[in-house]
Design a protein around this nucleic acid. Structure first.
Lengths: 245, 245
DNA sequence: AGGCAAGCTTACATTTACCTTAATTTTGCA
DNA sequence: TGCAAAATTAAGGTAAATGTAAGCTTGCCT
């Protein structure tokens, strides 16, 4: 449980993405956003990056090695001169790999393009965890989510209703978290399964439904007539956002 | 911001699995299916594979090195002569490994049997990602689409009109998505059917019309006099683009 | 004009995806 | 080890989504 809470706080980090290719900027943004990072800032070049670094004070940087108006290595040295912000490099070819290793710049990690979305997220999480471990421990506040009369607290994994407080089980927590991250949007059953059981599950279709049912029993005033956790027949499930979309 | 609710990515790739052992065919199919790949075609030998390659036009191939009526290497050369389809080899023994590496055939990757389910999926995903990088990029964006007063949100699968919000069913979603992807252009009835029912549909002509009608009821202010989802007699249907083309 | 084919509409039948409950198995913990 | 909580499996039920059919309308061609 504590691990989950710890991970959740990593996602609050403000990240600066520096790449000259708009496509790649958008892709990285989408991957990270989809995987839970909410505070993303992008820069197209060194000058942009310097300005945003000063203005936004990001807590993590994803940095392309090759930039049109300079290079990632020297940019990182600048940043490192004034802050210990963790940096994750994106390098286009293996040849950069040697430079990264050899220069001993203190890059926290690097990824060679093309990369798997999952890999980016995993490495970034690792980098941020290492850097902010002591801080993160203290920063255990996560916003409470309201659904009508019921309040969901992801820090404690509890749901408080007018009739009392309940605690979520591990699977319930995982499912609700995934739904919450995509609140307002449809989440496929497949996606939910992966969130709760990982990529390698071989189980009955029904299992997910039973868990959804139990979750509804905890968060819905009337589980049989759900108002917040809706099923979208043929597509998946959807948790209502604050704006009821 | 936008969350991909469909598997609009590498999981949409049609895959051809070539292996002479029925057991292995089934196992690979099950692993891939379980991990999210939905379009799987299997072949028992070279001839089968050739036929299916021509008929199905797979977007990825998993190919056993040893086949009863030929060998995987030459089969791949044939495929590669006419297409850049990514190929993932399954080799029974380590000795094949040297050949794979040495021949420089351009195999995208290979796995030595026996392998972990997870490894197969991961390597395949990597192979497909590399191959379809630009395609995947384009498909991950799902902005909100406006048609006059009505707004279509593909993320939440909802249509909001001046009189309230409606949700799309699975078939309606599939059809509208296809029309949206080709907005401004005519989409044949056949193409729409394939989008909603897959390649193997046996049904009444009428079915599509009924669904189009239902869709119109949700997105058109006046379903009987459509302004956005037009029928093009003898050809198909057309969804108006933002510029009403 | 009139006939024909393509498409529309409506009501009804059927299917399938999902729900529900309960029994069974597994897991976590003392 | 044994108990309690959680997770999974299983079976039967249900309604929304989908499919079917039959009669109707529209546009096109001779």
């Amino acid at each position: 449980m504590s691990v989950v809470i710890h991970m959740n706080d990593i996602f609050d980090c403000k990240l600066l993405i520096v790449d000259d290719e708009p496509q790649l900027r958008r892709m990285v943004s989408e991957i990270l956003n989809r995987d839970g990072f909410r505070k993303l800032v992008t820069a197209a070049g060194c000058n942009d990056a310097r300005r945003l670094f000063a203005a936004e004070k990001p807590e993590g940087i994803i940095l392309d090695v090759a930039l049109p108006d300079g290079d990632g290595f020297s940019l990182m040295r600048e940043f490192r001169a004034v802050s210990a912000v963790p940096v994750l490099f994106l390098s286009a070819r293996d040849e950069d790999e040697n430079r990264l290793l050899g220069l001993g710049l203190g890059a926290d990690d690097y990824i060679v393009k093309p990369f798997l979305p999952r890999e980016l997220t995993l490495r970034l999480r690792a980098v941020l965890s290492r850097a902010y471990f002591p801080v993160v421990l203290r920063q255990t506040e996560k916003p409470v989510f309201r659904l009508g009369e019921t309040e969901i607290n992801f820090n404690s994994g509890t749901v408080s209703t007018p009739t009392g407080a309940l605690t979520l089980t591990a699977k319930e927590y995982a499912l609700l978290e995934k739904l919450y991250e995509n609140r307002g949007n449809i989440v496929t059953g497949d996606s939910l399964c992966r969130a709760a059981w990982g990529d390698d599950l071989y189980g009955y279709e029904n299992t997910l439904m039973v868990h959804i049912r139990r979750l509804r029993e905890k968060i819905e005033p009337q589980p049989s007539a759900p108002r917040f956790l809706l099923t979208v027949r043929g597509l998946g499930y959807k948790l209502m956002g604050a704006d009821n979309q």
